[in-house]
Amino acid sequence: MSIQHFRVALIPFFAAFCLPVFAHPETLVKVKDAEDQLGARVGYIELDLNSGKILESFRPEERFPMMSTFKVLLCGAVLSRVDAGQEQLGRRIHYSQNDLVKYSPVTEKHLTDGMTVRELCSAAITMSDNTAANLLLTTIGGPKELTAFLHNMGDHVTRLDRWEPELNEAIPNDERDTTMPAAMATTLRKLLTGELLTLASRQQLIDWMEADKVAGPLLRSALPAGWFIADKSGAGERGSRGIIAALGPDGKPSRIVVIYTTGSQATMDERNRQIAEIGASLIKHW
């Protein structure tokens, strides 16, 4: 068994979910400061990975656009189908120029040979490839089937209604394609530690997140040497930005962190900087 497989195998399969305990108010002060700096709502939650206990939260039950963070949930649904014998990671999917949508850096290079389901999930999570996400959504039956998958695992909040790139529209008070920080954190924890997926599929999902190549300016920029992070970022219209992550010291994950913001006029660089500063405070007061 590899070190990575050993790491995931040791994560307990508890489903406990406790009331908020504000253990590190310094980080919450930074979250509130980020709201002021961005002129926007910021949602934040931090869960203990083992117990599910809420360590910190701010606007945990307010809706925020999911943006590309939904791609982790999508690949979780795909892996669930693989575990059930309904899908194969090695199955090759062919597509055409007409299937390509905005921001598809991986799929646009494989119009001739197509891509396997495994490769599409990797592209969707590590590079946030939008066409890969749409092709994967098609394999499970579309956005409503992803919502149904989430409902079946106990998440009655998170919903996907549209395809890429329309799902990033982020209209105020529009519940389409949204989640809440508390719901997303709990669902991510179930996918990474629960019995919904096999150990091999849980390991595959966290491996894809660990290999994320487009979230460098966010939490990763604040991470000390030797820390572990597996994450997925998202960006949308109307100043929307977000990240979901499993992270921790000593090379293994010990907490789930979810950060969303929407409604800002700030630049992407400024949104990234504020999320990175929240991450720096989190690590400082770990």
Rank of each mutant, 00 (worst) to 15 (best):
I3G: 04
I3M: 09
R7G: 11
V8G: 07
V8R: 11
P12G: 09
P12S: 14
A15V: 15
A16H: 14
L19H: 14
P25S: 12
P25L: 04
L28R: 07
K30Y: 08
K32R: 13
E35V: 04
D36A: 14
Q37R: 14
L38G: 08
L38D: 06
G39R: 14
V42A: 06
V42R: 00
G43R: 00
Y44T: 01
Y44V: 07
Y44R: 00
L49R: 02
N50G: 15
S51A: 09
G52D: 07
K53N: 09
K53A: 15
E56V: 08
S57V: 13
S57G: 12
S57N: 04
S57M: 10
F58S: 08
R59Q: 05
P60H: 11
P60V: 10
E62A: 11
F64M: 05
P65W: 01
P65N: 04
P65C: 03
M67T: 14
S68Q: 00
S68N: 00
F70L: 05
V72S: 05
L73H: 06
L73M: 10
L73V: 10
A77E: 06
A77P: 01
A77W: 04
A77V: 10
V78A: 05
L79G: 01
S80P: 00
R81A: 11
R81C: 05
D83E: 05
D83H: 03
D83R: 02
A84D: 14
G85D: 13
G85C: 07
G85I: 04
Q86H: 12
Q86Y: 15
E87K: 01
E87Q: 06
Q88R: 13
L89F: 08
R91W: 04
R91Q: 05
R92S: 11
I93R: 02
H94D: 09
Y95F: 15
S96P: 08
Y103L: 04
Y103C: 06
Y103S: 05
K109F: 15
T112A: 14
V117I: 10
R118T: 07
R118K: 09
L120F: 03
C121R: 00
S122N: 11
T126R: 06
T126I: 03
A132V: 00
N134V: 02
N134S: 03
L135R: 03
L135T: 07
L136T: 03
L137V: 08
L137M: 12
I140N: 03
I140S: 03
G141R: 05
G141E: 03
P143A: 07
P143R: 02
E145L: 11
E145M: 15
E145S: 14
L146Q: 03
A148D: 12
N152T: 11
M153K: 08
G154E: 10
R159F: 05
R159L: 04
L160G: 03
L160P: 03
D161N: 02
D161G: 02
D161S: 08
D161Y: 04
R162L: 04
W163T: 12
W163M: 14
W163A: 11
E164T: 00
E164G: 00
P165Q: 06
P165A: 07
E166T: 10
L167V: 12
L167T: 07
L167P: 03
N168R: 02
N168S: 07
A170L: 10
P172H: 11
N173D: 13
D174R: 02
D174S: 07
D174I: 02
E175I: 11
R176V: 06
D177F: 01
D177L: 00
T178D: 01
T178I: 03
T178V: 04
T178K: 01
T178A: 04
T179V: 01
T179R: 00
M180N: 15
M180P: 01
A182P: 07
A182T: 13
A183G: 08
M184Y: 10
T186E: 15
T186A: 13
T187E: 02
L192V: 07
E195G: 13
L197D: 02
A200I: 07
A200D: 15
A200F: 08
R202Q: 08
R202E: 08
Q203H: 09
I206L: 14
W208G: 01
E210R: 14
D212Q: 10
K213R: 14
A215R: 04
P217R: 10
L218T: 03
L218K: 01
L218G: 03
L218I: 04
L219P: 04
L219F: 08
L219D: 03
R220W: 02
S221D: 09
S221W: 10
S221K: 11
S221R: 12
A222I: 13
L223Q: 05
L223C: 12
P224L: 03
P224G: 07
A225H: 15
A225V: 14
G226A: 09
G226F: 07
G226P: 07
W227S: 01
F228S: 07
F228R: 08
F228V: 07
I229L: 06
A230G: 14
D231V: 03
D231G: 03
D231E: 04
K232A: 00
A235S: 09
G236A: 10
G236E: 02
E237Q: 15
R238W: 14
R238V: 12
R238C: 12
G239T: 02
G239E: 01
S240K: 01
R241N: 03
R241V: 03
I243C: 09
I244S: 02
I244A: 07
I244D: 01
A245I: 01
A246Q: 05
A246V: 14
L247V: 14
L247A: 05
P249Q: 09
P249A: 07
P249S: 08
G251A: 12
K252M: 12
K252E: 14
P253S: 11
R255H: 04
R255E: 02
I259V: 08
T261A: 12
G263A: 10
S264V: 05
Q265L: 13
A266E: 13
A266D: 11
A266V: 12
T267R: 12
T267L: 10
I275V: 00
E277V: 12
E277D: 04
L282R: 03
L282F: 08
L282V: 15
I283D: 03
I283S: 05
I283R: 05
K284E: 12
K284L: 09
H285N: 11
